[in-house]
């Protein structure tokens, strides 16, 4: 479903408005208020039920929605997300599907057909959720946030690099709101207690020498309790020992994304400084593979965002290499 916050709610949303207090409302009242037939109201109730809302029809009383948390559908339906949003533009249009192959692919498709800046794509699960260069992203149904946002900064391509750090910035701020100390594994993965909690995939489409659009994809683990073996992973729920309302987490994420995005229009230094401050890698022995191949000590993040690694050439000589490609991992101390 594709909803715009500023558009008039459809009759399904209006019907939900009547029911959301949890009080029983008669079909008669709803049909009169909306100016539709009672049968039309019944149809909208069926539509809401199909989306997972539990509505009981009580004889001579009317429809009643079960509003306690355990009965509400755990879905990021646009009209359930909108009331949480405090952003100006980001998330004003939401494309939601139960399953999308990859939210980044869908967002790219929407961006190329003219979707406005701030449009976001959400899925409950992704069948081909992906990271960099075809790597997969585990998307347990309705457990995490699988988000892609369309941005259209008016900047030359040569100044695009700060946007690679924006997603991790927003995630770090959200985690701090929940009292968690997070680290950024350069350039854009987020870790809590040495376990991965979020990954970012930023895809940009150029128009000549300028940025056409950016699709900023973020996978954030929220209510997952377990993960497939592989990279050590964690979720907000595992760290906090409670389940969270994903719409609330999403609203915070979008707020920080928008705030960071607006700030980048004026200045980019703060974002590099923050990436430095929260860096997981600085001071550690690292291995760089894929694209660039080297081993050394991560010593700093340059003003252009590149990771600076001190490499021993031989016993006496060292050099500092600027890393802007490849995968960086912390060398395991097993030798």
């Amino acid at each position: 479903m594709y909803y715009n916050k500023n558009n008039t709610p459809d009759s399904m949303q209006k019907t939900l408005e009547f029911l959301k207090s949890g009080e029983a409302v008669s079909g008669e009242i709803i049909s009169q208020s909306l100016g539709v037939s009672r049968n039309a109201v019944w149809k909208q109730v069926q539509n809401l039920k199909a989306l997972g809302f539990e509505i009981v029809a009580e004889r001579n009383v009317g429809y009643r929605l079960l509003t306690d948390q355990s009965h509400l559908p755990d879905r990021l339906y646009p009209f359930l997300v909108f009331p949480f949003l405090r952003t100006k533009k980001l998330g004003n249009a939401i494309f939601w599907e139960m399953e999308i192959s990859s939210t980044n692919d869908k967002a790219t498709e929407l961006a190329k057909t003219g979707a406005e800046e701030g449009t976001i794509v959400l899925a409950e699960t992704q069948s081909k959720g992906r990271g960099r260069r075809g790597r997969s992203w585990e998307s347990a149904t309705s457990k995490g946030i699988y988000l892609s946002a369309i941005l259209r900064p008016q900047r030359p391509l040569a100044q695009s690099s700060p946007y690679t750090f924006l997603g991790a910035y927003a995630v770090v701020r959200v985690l701090e709101d929940y009292g968690l100390k997070a680290f950024i594994k350069w350039p854009n993965d987020v870790y809590v207690a040495e376990k991965k909690i979020s990954g970012v995939l930023t895809e940009l489409s150029a128009i000549g020498q300028d940025i056409g659009h950016i699709v900023l994809g973020i996978g954030l683990n929220v209510n997952q309790k377990e993960f497939s073996p592989g990279v050590p992973a964690t979720s907000l729920s595992l760290e906090l020992n409670r389940n969270l309302q994903r719409a609330e987490v999403l609203a915070k994420l979008l707020l920080y994304l928008e705030e960071g995005y607006e700030r980048l229009k004026k200045d980019t230094k703060w974002l590099i400084e923050l990436t430095r401050e929260y860096s997981l890698l600085l001071g550690k022995e690292v291995v760089v593979t894929g694209g660039m191949e080297l081993e050394g000590t991560a010593i700093d993040i340059a003003d252009d965002g590149a990771l600076l690694v001190r490499v021993k050439e031989n016993i006496q000589e060292e050099k500092v290499v600027k890393v802007w490609a490849g995968d960086v991992s912390v060398r395991q101390k097993q030798r």
């Binding site: 690099s161 946007y163 690679t164 930023t202 489409s205 490609a325």
Partner: peptide
């Protein structure tokens, strides 16, 4: 063209 995990799709002018 990938730089610091930002995937830049270059299009023809």
């Amino acid at each position: 063209i990938e730089a610091m995990k930002l995937m830049n799709e270059i299009t023809s002018e």
